[in-house]
Deep mutational scan, measured.
Amino acid sequence: DTLHVTQDGKHIELRGLSEEEIKLVEELLRRGRKVEEALKIIEELRK
């Protein structure tokens, strides 16, 4: 699936995420994380 995010005035499209990963990214962003940080966390969880 694809998640569309706008952060720091930039539109970012995150592709290839599972539904659970999207929920996790959304939660991390709500808690003030940056998109880059959220993606690093997803990458770690995929290992």
Rank of each mutant, 00 (worst) to 15 (best):
D1M: 11
D1I: 10
D1L: 15
D1Y: 03
D1C: 06
D1V: 06
D1K: 05
T2W: 08
L3A: 08
L3Y: 04
L3P: 07
L3V: 11
L3H: 11
L3R: 01
H4F: 05
H4W: 12
H4C: 07
H4S: 10
H4D: 09
H4Q: 10
V5C: 13
V5P: 06
V5S: 07
V5A: 05
V5T: 07
V5W: 04
V5I: 11
T6V: 15
T6E: 14
T6G: 06
T6R: 02
T6M: 15
T6Y: 12
T6D: 14
Q7F: 02
Q7S: 12
Q7W: 02
Q7R: 01
Q7K: 02
D8W: 00
D8S: 05
D8M: 03
D8Q: 03
D8P: 06
D8Y: 01
D8L: 02
D8T: 04
D8E: 06
D8K: 01
D8F: 01
G9C: 03
G9W: 02
G9H: 07
G9P: 03
G9A: 02
G9T: 03
G9S: 04
K10C: 05
K10E: 14
K10V: 15
K10S: 13
K10R: 05
K10A: 14
K10Y: 14
K10G: 09
H11T: 12
H11A: 07
H11S: 06
H11P: 12
H11L: 13
H11G: 07
H11K: 07
H11E: 14
I12R: 03
I12D: 06
I12F: 15
E13R: 02
E13T: 10
E13P: 06
E13I: 14
E13K: 03
E13V: 14
L14R: 01
L14T: 04
L14S: 02
L14G: 04
L14E: 04
L14P: 01
L14V: 10
L14H: 03
L14F: 05
R15Q: 14
R15S: 13
R15D: 09
R15N: 13
R15H: 14
G16W: 05
G16M: 03
G16A: 05
L17N: 00
L17D: 00
L17W: 04
L17R: 00
L17K: 00
L17A: 02
L17S: 00
L17M: 08
L17V: 02
L17F: 11
S18D: 08
S18T: 14
S18M: 05
S18H: 06
S18E: 05
S18F: 05
S18V: 05
E19N: 13
E19R: 14
E19G: 13
E19S: 15
E19V: 15
E20A: 13
E20W: 13
E21C: 01
E21K: 00
E21Y: 02
I22E: 06
I22H: 07
I22M: 13
I22W: 10
I22K: 14
I22T: 10
K23A: 13
K23I: 12
K23P: 04
K23R: 14
K23T: 11
L24Q: 05
L24N: 03
L24Y: 08
L24H: 06
L24E: 04
L24I: 13
V25N: 00
V25C: 07
V25T: 04
V25Q: 00
V25Y: 06
V25K: 01
V25D: 00
V25H: 01
V25F: 11
V25E: 00
V25A: 06
V25L: 12
V25G: 01
E26R: 15
E26L: 15
E26I: 15
E26K: 14
E26G: 11
E27Q: 11
E27D: 14
E27S: 09
E27Y: 12
E27N: 10
E27G: 07
E27F: 12
L28A: 06
L28Y: 12
L28T: 04
L28E: 05
L28V: 06
L28P: 00
L28S: 03
L28G: 01
L29V: 08
L29I: 13
L29G: 01
L29F: 05
L29K: 02
R30T: 08
R30H: 10
R30E: 11
R30C: 07
R30Y: 08
R31E: 12
R31F: 12
R31G: 12
R31L: 12
R31V: 13
R31W: 14
G32T: 01
G32N: 04
G32V: 01
G32F: 03
G32M: 01
G32W: 01
R33H: 15
R33I: 15
R33W: 15
R33P: 01
R33E: 12
R33S: 14
R33M: 15
K34P: 12
K34W: 06
K34Y: 09
K34I: 06
K34F: 06
K34H: 11
V35H: 04
V35F: 08
V35W: 07
V35K: 03
V35N: 02
V35Y: 06
V35D: 01
E36P: 06
E36L: 10
E36W: 12
E36V: 08
E36K: 08
E36R: 07
E36F: 11
E36D: 11
E36A: 11
E37Q: 09
E37G: 03
E37P: 00
E37H: 08
E37D: 11
E37F: 09
E37A: 07
E37L: 05
E37W: 06
A38M: 07
A38S: 04
A38F: 03
A38E: 00
L39D: 00
L39F: 06
L39I: 13
L39P: 00
L39A: 04
K40N: 10
K40R: 13
K40H: 11
K40Q: 14
K40F: 12
I41C: 05
I41V: 11
I41G: 02
I41E: 09
I41T: 07
I41Y: 12
I41R: 06
I42M: 04
I42A: 01
I42Y: 00
I42G: 00
I42P: 00
I42D: 00
I42F: 01
I42Q: 00
I42W: 01
I42C: 00
E43S: 07
E44Y: 09
E44C: 05
E44A: 09
E44W: 09
E44P: 00
L45I: 12
L45R: 05
L45W: 08
L45G: 06
L45D: 04
R46K: 04
R46C: 02
R46M: 03
R46H: 03
R46V: 02
R46I: 02
R46L: 03
R46P: 01
R46E: 01
K47I: 13
K47G: 14
K47M: 15
K47T: 13
K47D: 11
K47Y: 12
K47Q: 14
K47W: 14
K47C: 04
